[in-house]
Amino acid sequence: MPMPMHADAAFRYDDLRALYINCTLKPTPERSHTQGLIDISTGIMERQGVQVEVLRAVDIDIATGVWPDMTEHGWETDQWPVIYSKVMAADILTLAGPVWLGDNSSVMKKVIERLYACSSILNERGQYAYYGRVGGCLITGNEDGAKHCAMNVLYSLQHLGYVIPPQADAGWVGPAGPGPSYLDPGSGGPANDFTNRNTTFMTWNQLHMARMLKDAGGIPAHGNQRSEWDAGCRFDFENPEHR
């Protein structure tokens, strides 16, 4: 494993795990422009010793639905439970995908739906399962809509329980109208300073936030425990029956 860039223990990240889910519509081995942007972020993490895994969701048999395992609801196969185990093993989750008709890809929407399907699961402290993890997103395209897509992804992740650090999104889109995509010759994408800066800042902010959360043992378990709320605890919310 490569040594972290910083020797000071406060800046070590080599005990962290990061998962990137590429929501391109293109199956492997087709070239994914989104993967080109993912590679910038993963490169930074890997140089810090982070254990990184990248999945291409379209290559995986993910059933449609809003239950943790759709084979229990009529589907013959569903590999989402395997992905969910990787999600739960990761300190950092980055969802990445293209812009289509100004919106996220159908694959991105399916991944978010399946994340949502598991959002009612609780951790050992009675909090929602995704608590204590960091989220972010990367968007590519050759049409407008990157910020709209990022807003949807980041809102969805925080709603599920992820912590969103500052500036946790980055993207690249070409000029308005049909044109080259990120990795196409002449696009200027890989050399774009704005995109490279934002991708770098996003990645480091994810690392910093994940470091703080891991060192703190996650989000403090008070005032946010579904199990305690269901048992009648109201955490200073006015409740005449439980004084």
Results as ranks from 00 to 15, higher is better:
residue 29 P to I: 12
residue 51 Q to S: 13
residue 242 H to W: 06
residue 119 S to H: 09
residue 11 F to D: 03
residue 199 T to Q: 03
residue 184 D to I: 03
residue 94 T to F: 07
residue 173 V to I: 08
residue 2 P to Y: 00
residue 215 D to Q: 13
residue 156 S to V: 08
residue 239 N to R: 02
residue 216 A to M: 10
residue 27 P to L: 01
residue 165 P to T: 12
residue 150 A to D: 01
residue 117 A to N: 00
residue 119 S to Q: 15
residue 101 L to V: 15
residue 143 E to T: 14
residue 148 H to G: 14
residue 74 G to T: 09
residue 26 K to P: 00
residue 110 K to A: 13
residue 189 G to T: 07
residue 216 A to I: 05
residue 11 F to P: 00
residue 62 I to R: 04
residue 150 A to K: 01
residue 162 Y to H: 13
residue 212 M to I: 02
residue 118 C to K: 02
residue 235 F to W: 14
residue 162 Y to R: 08
residue 22 N to C: 13
residue 68 P to A: 12
residue 32 S to A: 06
residue 199 T to C: 14
residue 47 R to M: 07
residue 238 E to C: 03
residue 94 T to G: 07
residue 192 N to A: 06
residue 94 T to L: 09
residue 221 A to D: 09
residue 170 A to C: 06
residue 189 G to M: 09
residue 126 G to M: 05
residue 227 S to V: 01
residue 150 A to Y: 06
residue 44 I to C: 12
residue 190 P to E: 12
residue 184 D to N: 09
residue 125 R to Y: 01
residue 117 A to F: 05
residue 48 Q to N: 10
residue 69 D to I: 05
residue 49 G to A: 00
residue 166 P to T: 01
residue 57 A to V: 09
residue 187 S to P: 06
residue 208 H to F: 12
residue 66 V to A: 15
residue 139 I to S: 09
residue 169 D to I: 00
residue 46 E to M: 14
residue 66 V to M: 13
residue 52 V to T: 12
residue 121 I to D: 10
residue 66 V to S: 12
residue 149 C to G: 07
residue 41 S to V: 04
residue 9 A to C: 01
residue 200 T to L: 00
residue 140 T to S: 10
residue 74 G to S: 03
residue 195 T to Y: 07
residue 210 A to S: 13
residue 193 D to L: 15
residue 52 V to F: 11
